[in-house]
Amino acid sequence: MGVRIELDDICVSLGGQPVLDRVSFVIEPGEFIGIIGPNGAGKSTLLRVILGSIQPDSGRVKITAVDGSPAPRRAIGYMPQTRLIDPELPISAADFVGFGLPHRYRPWLNRADRGQVGELLGLVGAAHLAGKPIGRLSGGERQRVCLAQTLAGDPEALLLDEPTASLDPAMQEQIADLVSGICREKAINVLFISHDVELVGKHADRMLYMGEGEYSLNVHRSRRLLGGT
C-alpha cells in the first residue's frame, strides 16, 4: 500500500539560515528512498517537514493514500535520531512497544493488543526481549524495539532518521536488511537517512542526495515501481 508523498517548492529557514531551498519531488507508494548528505544539509528537517512537525516557510506537502484520499497523520511513522533512554529505565520491551499502539484512551491492553505487540516483536526479531527492561538492551536491540514501537501505529510510511547511527557495521547491516524486508513485506514507504551510501544503496529504490542548498533525487536501482532490473 504505502502513500504518495509530494513536496512542492518547499523552503525552510531555521534561525534565519535557509535549510531547505525550493525542494520538490514525488515519492510513489511503496518506494524505499535512501537519504544521504553531510551534517546540516537538512535531512532531518526534511523528514520533520513531511511529518508536519515543522511548517515550511513556503511550499506544500501533500500526502495521499493509494486511492487518492488525504492520508491521516498516523499514516506516518517516525523514528527520531536522538532517543535518550535511561539505562535504569525499568520498562519492559513489550510495554515500550505497546506505547505505540494507536488507541489513546483505553488504559489497558486487551488480548488483541498483546498479541499484536508479540507479533511486532517477532517481526523485528526481538520476541526474546519482550520481558527485558528497555534500558538494559544493547544499541541494536533497542533500535529493533523502537522500530517495533513505530510499526505499532500501523504506518503507511516510515521516516527513519539515522536508525543505524552508533551501531557496529554488522548490526547496521542487520537493521537495514530488516527495514528493507518490512518495506517489501508490508509494501510501505521508507525514507532512510544514513551516512553510509553502500549500506542504504543496497536497499533503496532511489537515493536523495542532499548538500548545502542543493539536492538531487536519482534512480539508484530500478525495481518494482520503476519497472527495471
Binding site: 497523520r73 527520531p80 520498562i91 515500550f96 506505547f99 505505540g100 489513546r104 488504559p107 514501537q149
Partner: peptide, 23 residues
C-alpha cells in the same frame, strides 16, 4: 488520570517516541 493514562505513560517514559507519534 484514567483517560490520560496511556498518553501520559508514553510521554513520561519515552518523550521522544511520544513526540514522534504526534501526541
Amino acid at each position: 488520570l484514567i483517560p490520560g493514562y496511556r498518553m501520559l505513560t508514553f510521554d513520561s517514559f519515552d518523550p521522544a517516541g511520544a513526540e514522534a507519534a504526534g501526541l
